[in-house]
Design a protein around this nucleic acid. Structure first.
Lengths: 343, 343
DNA sequence: TTGAAAGCGCTAACAT
DNA sequence: ATGTTAGCGCTTTCAA
């Protein structure tokens, strides 16, 4: 049947332990024997059983990753960052797709725990108190990416400073002559990002002496369709609102908004400017190119794994902090300077 | 430390074997004991170690998946299909990203083999003779998705009929009055899809009595940038070519082409019609909405796993066949009827 | 219905 | 430098 380490040992005329050594610490075995073993491995086409190895070594060399949704357009880039540094550290990554369900996200912890991952990068919903029971008993280091914790258990997090990022977006819009700025917000419940970005919007307006108007805001769930519909609702009040720009809490919503405007015979940015958030790869594919706030997804993933790796070596490396990674504004074509109807 | 099955056994006053039974075959254990054990599990917050379980059971309940690139826009949908039926069968999926490298794709087999996966869904490059040495020794069922094999080892495959699909696309274009149809082709080497789609294009033209012109074709690598550049090259000859429509071998290239046309002051579809292939989620987000050939990614994934599951039970279920899943044309706005310059 | 014991394939002391 | 031995945590005969 399957070729095991014993078969190799026999073939090479050594003990299984020696085979194991040439696999893991080749410097401990004499060159001659080493070659003999390597040869046997080749001849028999032996592949070490990673499962058995993990069991014995009490560690599966695996990082667990919980993502909100596998089809989210930012997933790929985030994964890349995570995979890159994991691989560099000789670890694999085990993926768990929460499918946008809070319940499934919680299940992710159980799943990954059962698979003996050495650490978990969690990138889904807000981690609130209801996660505490699970987190307490987990016994596995957890690092957050793209989200934050309000749970009792303090968790290290890597993300952009959402408030500042949207503040900067508002500043950008204002610097281009906009004052009547609408917002396509994310969800307020269940999602720290939604709250923070809305807050950034309000703070931005306040700073520039622009009054906040509830009627300028509609919210969605970050997806294209919800952006489309939110824009539609905003449009119904456009006669009174006279918005010159709309800031969306995600690129997908921004693109949904653009699509909606187009369907209503409005041009972007001539009739209305639209700005997004994320800088997904699609942002530069669409016409007009989307001006947006870029998040460094890959870097966030990398830093999260780095942190996990550090936590494994040194215990309790300043845990619980939220580290902000730099966002930046990417200027393309969806925002117009000096809009006609600026007040 | 970690809670094991022995701790539970002790707590419940039974043997480890009994605990194992309530975990896997609860009907074999008396209700009273069962409850006692379940209670102990709850109290101790016991989580079975999937690694140990896999080692003992000689099977990791895992399906391996090799994808060409995690950032490919179709990845999400494909994964969903695969995950859905795996999960239904009580299996997990272990992902391997080939990062668009043939070499890495081959590594995927090794990686997954070491992890004792019960089957592999391979969705990357063309599987040619150079895969044979690996395939022969693998000893794990492999099913192809979105690709095909020219290797000696016969492999079951699920995909759309690329030739027919592009033939249908050409038919669609012709039915809309186009005869001067350009093509943004994929790669010819290293990728069965490129060859097949080009063939569909030629067959289509032939069928409608349109002469094939090499100067109407440019190729790329399916990505946005390459579509942009290929379109640029086509545009340089547009004075002579007088194309009224361009068919791209992927949505990304089609969108790149649209972007290119826009940058050159040409309108889609008024000045030139563009048609894509894939029906990615972005196809309906862009302006104009992309008319394209839809591939049932999720279904392809589902069928592939189904096949794998069958192969595990019944040995050698009609292996080696290529099963075509239905494509369909999705009409949006990027193709114009009765183009002005139609010959 | 339950327990005892062996073993899955590997690693890691501990000897030699 | 290499072999022996004892597990890692679970499942699975085989007995009782």
């Amino acid at each position: 049947m399957k070729v095991t380490i014993r078969d190799v040992a026999q073939q090479a005329g050594v003990s299984p332990a020696t085979v194991s050594r040439v696999l893991n610490k080749p410097e401990l075995v004499e060159p001659a024997t080493r070659e003999r073993v390597r040869n046997a491995i080749r001849v028999l086409d032996f592949q070490p059983n990673a499962i058995a190895r993990g069991l014995s070594a009490q560690n599966s060399d695996t990082i667990g990753l919980v993502v909100p949704g596998i089809t989210d357009l930012f997933f790929g880039e985030l994964y890349r960052g995570i995979e890159r540094v994991s691989r560099r550290a000789g670890m694999k990554v085990l993926l768990f797709d929460a499918q946008h369900s809070r319940h499934r996200a919680l299940e992710g912890f159980t799943f990954l725990r059962q698979h003996q991952v050495g650490g978990i990068v969690f990138t889904s919903k807000l981690v609130s108190e209801d996660f505490d029971p699970v987190l307490e008993r987990l016994g596995i280091p957890v690092v957050l990416a793209l989200t934050q914790a309000t749970s009792k258990t303090p968790l290290h997090a890597f993300k952009v400073d959402d408030v500042k990022a949207v503040f900067d977006a508002v500043s950008y819009l204002v610097s281009r002559g906009h004052r009547r700025i609408g917002m396509l917000s994310g969800q307020i419940e269940d999602d720290i990002t939604g709250t923070l970005r809305l807050q950034g919007y309000r703070t931005g307006l306040l700073h520039y002496g622009i009054e906040f108007q509830a009627s300028f805001v509609e919210n969605g769930d970050y997806r294209f369709d919800s952006g489309y519909r939110a824009m539609q609702r905003l449009l119904r009040r456009q006669a009174e609102n006279r918005l010159t720009a709309v800031f969306a809490a995600s690129d997908e919503m921004a693109i949904g908004a653009i699509r909606c405007l187009h369907d209503n015979g409005l041009r972007v940015p001539e009739d209305l400017s639209v700005m997004g958030f994320d800088d997904l790869s699609v942002a530069h594919m669409v016409v007009p190119g989307l001006t947006t706030v870029a998040q460094p997804f890959a870097e966030i993933g990398e830093r999260a794994v780095d942190q996990l790796l550090q936590m494994r070596s040194a215990e309790g490396v300043h845990a619980g902090a939220t580290e902000y990674l730099p966002h930046r504004i990417v200027e393309r074509e969806s925002v117009q300077t000096a809009p006609a109807g600026a007040s």
